[in-house]
């Protein structure tokens, strides 16, 4: 083990953290509302739209992330090129934009599943009571249903977020200079792979532990009304 290189690799790995977190956060910002909305639309059971959403959800559930990345990374430029008709160079688009789209695409489906499960844990009477005191539908969801849903959704959202962070390491496939790619490139020069992978390992572990801690704290806060922590 080359300690000097290990230290250097650790520094390089950490330099990728902001990009990894940026992709994670932007993905969540897009996927949370989109996933929630997908579930609401799905509950209305509108023909065709219902089936389309179902197909999309099975695609995400049934395929490896790396395949989703390849499919989207190769088809999005074709789509854009078709629409833009040569007005700009699709190959000049920074990979981070692809990362936002690709990871949001996958995460929205996961959020939709989580939201569906969480909505089922909230009693129908809660919504009726909200209507009976004169709340509108959006008010009832915002004030009564969402907060209660959140307690049921948080443990699953935590797992999904951790999985998302780990999945961003596949960003190397689209040349996204995040933690894994940067460190690997540095390792290539002197074949210091063990040191590099150990550094990567430690950095991901730290990020994921921090995320789990943050979720745990949030969960404690939102669960107050249930009189104690259930987990």
């Amino acid at each position: 083990m080359d300690i000097a290189f290990f230290k250097q690799a650790l520094g390089i790995a950490f330099s990728g953290v902001p990009l990894t977190l940026l992709v994670t956060v932007v993905t969540l910002i897009i996927a949370l509302p989109v996933g929630f909305f997908l579930t609401l639309v799905r509950m209305k059971r509108i023909p065709v739209i219902h089936q389309l959403i179902g197909i999309y959800l099975s695609f995400i559930r049934g395929t490896p992330v790396i395949i989703q990345i390849f499919v989207l990374y190769n088809s999005i430029p074709l789509l854009i090129a078709g629409v833009a008709k040569g007005k700009f160079d699709v190959y000049a688009i920074h990979p981070i934009w692809y990362a936002f789209v690709i990871f949001s695409f996958g995460m929205a489906a996961i959020v939709a599943e989580i939201v569906r499960g969480a909505l089922q844990t909230v009693d129908k009477g809660q919504l009726e009571a909200a209507y009976s005191v004169g709340l509108t539908v959006p008010q009832a969801y915002r004030r009564i249903i969402l907060p209660q849903m959140l307690t049921a959704a948080l443990p699953n959202l935590c797992t999904a977020t951790v999985n998302l962070v780990k999945a961003t390491s596949l960003g190397y496939a689209i040349a996204l200079p995040e933690i894994t790619l940067r460190t690997k490139v540095a390792a290539n020069a002197g074949y210091h792979y063990v040191e590099a992978y150990t550094a990567i390992f430690i950095v991901y572990l730290l990020i994921c532990l921090l995320i789990e801690y943050a979720f745990h704290k949030t969960e404690q806060r939102v669960r107050r009304y249930q009189g104690g922590i259930a987990c």
Binding site: Q126, E128, A129, S132, Y225, Q226
Partner: peptide
């Protein structure tokens, strides 16, 4: 109007 429910239906997340 106001409604009083058989199983109360108090908002579980509110005091």
């Amino acid at each position: 109007t106001a409604f009083v429910f058989q199983n109360y239906n108090l908002f579980a997340n509110k005091t």
